[in-house]
Design a protein around this nucleic acid. Structure first.
Length: 322
DNA sequence: AAGAATCCCAACCGCAAGTTG
DNA sequence: GCAACTTGCGGTTGGGATTCT
């Protein structure tokens, strides 16, 4: 179970701070500074561990702390900094005077992250989500709901959503297969024909451009009927990096967003990562789950089971693609 | 009105980096 | 160089508040 909690030692108090404790801590620090946090509780007459005192001070009692709702400007700043720095909350907090890393982290986890996901963006990369199909059932359900509300028969617009979705699913699948083929030529010992490792490299830019009809935020916006996703868009601005090709700096940052275990092979040699000029991976979507209400993210680095060719591609589609 | 579900955030946990002797 | 100690950081959680059914 790991080491025992520091505050369990000597029966030190845990949990919410009382106003009396706050008062003691504040008075002591204002008088003497915090000095050694470990020694502070004893000197201040508090039955807490130093760590608890430090957190209470830095996250709550510090006089320069700004409380209350985050402003639009702060929200914008957090989004921009997060797109560059990732989950470096303390670094982000340095750019927001009066805000603590904990507060920013909470705000991110409870508000901004959800907004980005709802808008179809990957909150870690700040780029359009590649597992958009995970949200497809919800989108279709919403389209249905809208139809019910308006008491109208299923209209062309909603039908078009389904057509586009199927088309995009096919493109997605095709890309996976192309990746598979590429991996076979480069890694002969790789997995079986029907199991595509999701950490493969990407298609080259020309190949990618041929798949550029895959869903984008504008697509999401278009299928929203101007009121579904657009409602979310109205109160949040899209970070400037969303539709740009990644810069080399961004590519370097990628390692911050990716758990080391999924980046490095067992012997520590790096597996194929995003190339500097590539778009984000499109292969994270488990096709076999199409139509299921999936979780918020499917970027789990696991393998993807593929259905057989005939199930997915009719001749007409292949002709269109070719 | 009441119970269930969800949201929110203060606080905790544990790891890693930095410091000291 | 090394071990012990301290501090900082990011992820996670418990439980109160709020909303939904």
């Amino acid at each position: 179970m790991g080491r025992s909690p520091c505050c369990d030692e000597n029966g030190l108090k845990k949990g919410p701070w009382t106003p009396e404790e706050d008062q003691k801590l504040m008075e002591y620090i204002q008088k003497n500074g915090h000095g050694s946090w470990r020694a502070l509780p004893r000197l201040a007459g508090l039955n807490r561990c130093g760590k608890s005192c430090r957190l209470r001070w830095t996250n709550y009692l510090r006089p320069d702390i700004k409380r209350g709702k985050f402003t639009q400007e702060e929200e914008q700043t957090i989004l921009q900094l997060h797109s560059v720095l990732g989950n470096k909350w303390s670094a982000i907090a340095k750019h927001l005077p009066g805000r603590t890393d904990n507060e920013i982290k909470n705000f991110w986890n409870t508000h901004l992250k959800k907004k980005l996901i709802q808008m179809g963006f990957d909150p870690m990369t700040h780029r359009p989500r590649t597992d958009f199909f995970a949200a497809l059932p919800q989108l279709i359900a919403l389209a249905n709901l809208r139809q019910l509300v308006e008491q109208r028969p299923w209209d062309d617009h909603a039908a078009r959503i389904q057509v586009e979705a199927v088309q995009a699913a096919k493109l997605q699948c095709l890309q996976n297969l192309l990746q598979s083929a590429a991996s076979i030529t480069t890694t002969p010992s790789s997995s079986s024909m029907n199991t595509i490792p999701s950490d493969l490299g990407l298609l080259s830019p020309p190949q990618m451009s041929s798949l550029s009809t895959l869903p984008s935020p504008s697509f999401l916006e278009s299928i929203s009927g101007q009121d579904m996703v657009a409602g979310q868009l109205s109160d949040i601005q899209i970070p400037s990096s969303f539709f740009e090709q990644p810069t080399s700096n961004e590519a370097n940052q990628q390692s911050d967003f990716t758990p080391k275990s999924s980046v490095e092979g067992e012997n520590g040699t790096p597996k194929m990562l995003l190339s500097e000029n590539s778009l984000p991976p499109l292969a994270d979507f488990p096709i076999s789950n199409l139509g299921d209400a999936c979780g918020a993210s499917s970027c789990d680095g696991s393998s993807i089971q593929f259905p057989s060719w005939p199930e997915l591609f009719d001749e007409q589609f292949m002709c269109e693609f070719v």
